[in-house]
């Protein structure tokens, strides 16, 4: 180095930060500012309605008249209400049967799609269709499919194939209506299950199947010992979500049957709406809605314990 002329170098000048810069560098303030939007949204759109709903459940509010605190009266009345218990029964039944159906068919579809098929990506897109169509729209389509007079199924079976003499009565009586709604819910729920399980299947390394193939496994054994156990963690998550969505379903039932015939297809959500808005008894409707909470807490706990990381998923500790 020849020159020793330091003044030729540019030296970064020291600038005193402004009070605003110092404020934003102060951690407590920064945390508060960053949390504010999210916390605000949650308070206004989640905590307030939930709190209002719970409060309403303990009042005798009706539309047009603010109610007074009546304690557990709404709940006491519900306990003796045959319709409420029928809705509880149908909600549980609807959730159980639809979930089993969705998972059986969704898993089967995911396993099929996981194979090498021609037009694979197109098939996957088609599978998603029932999921992307707005629920009300598909509900209206099902309404027509189940129509007493114009049902396409009745038309095909009676007029085209001649297997039956009379049209199906899908929505006219209690049990056929219940099964019809479950079928519609399964149809709508399959894509969600199939696509998420497909994502889960794709995380399973193909070399595990090759190793199992060399170990002498049959196709069923590969499913039983490799696919299923490795899919279980994601299966538990998807099932929890599916149970929650199905139990709280409203749109499909309300659009197709509105709880009928003779209130036989009411879910808790549709019954709560029925009592609260058209019926005007906001307090009673809120109480029915609040009564769903224990079921949902149970589903969440189920997921919490089922999702607890299994031993084989745990990190590489060397104990």
């Amino acid at each position: 180095m020849a020159g020793t002329d330091v003044s030729a170098h540019w030296v970064r000048p020291h600038i005193e930060p402004s009070w605003l810069a110092r404020l934003f560098d102060w951690k407590p303030f920064l945390i508060f500012i960053c949390m504010l939007p999210a916390a605000g949204l949650l308070l206004v759109f989640l905590t307030y309605p939930l709190g209002l709903g719970i409060w309403l459940a303990f009042t005798d509010t009706t539309i047009g008249r603010s109610g007074v605190w009546i304690g557990l009266e709404n709940f006491e009345y519900m306990m003796g209400d045959r319709l409420f218990w029928q809705a509880v029964f149908y909600s549980v039944f609807y959730t159980a049967v639809a979930t089993i159906g969705k998972f059986a068919l969704g898993l089967w579809l995911a396993l099929l799609l996981n194979n090498h098929l021609p037009f694979k990506s197109m098939l996957r897109a088609i599978i998603l269709l029932p999921w992307i169509v707005p629920t009300v729209l598909s509900a209206i389509a099902f309404w027509w499919i189940y129509d007493a007079q114009f049902s396409i199924i009745s038309y095909v079976v009676v007029d085209v194939l001649g297997w039956r003499d009379t049209y199906f009565d899908f929505l006219g009586s209690a049990w056929p209506a219940r099964w019809s709604l479950i079928a519609a819910n399964i149809w709508r729920g399959i894509p969600f299950v199939a696509i998420t399980l497909l994502a889960g299947l794709q995380t399973i390394s193909p070399s595990l199947y090759e190793a199992a193939l060399l170990d002498g496994s049959t196709g069923w054994q590969r499913f039983r010992y490799i696919t299923f156990p490795l899919l279980l963690p994601i299966l538990a998550i998807v099932m929890t979500f599916s149970i929650i969505f199905t139990f709280t379903d409203f749109q499909l039932v309300y659009a197709i049957t509105r709880g009928g015939p003779v209130n036989s297809t009411h879910l808790l959500a549709t019954l709560a709406f029925q009592r609260g808005i058209p019926g005007g008894n906001l307090g009673e409707g809120a109480a029915i809605a609040v009564s769903m909470i224990p079921f949902l807490v149970f589903a969440t706990l189920f997921s919490y314990f089922a999702l607890a990381r299994r031993k084989w998923q745990q990190g590489e500790s060397n104990d």
Binding site: S207, L208, L214, Y225
Partner: peptide, 13 residues
């Protein structure tokens, strides 16, 4: 035959 894979292909569970 028996094969040892590059990623070992051990069954994680």
């Amino acid at each position: 035959i028996a094969m040892v894979f590059q990623n070992y292909a051990l069954y994680p569970h």
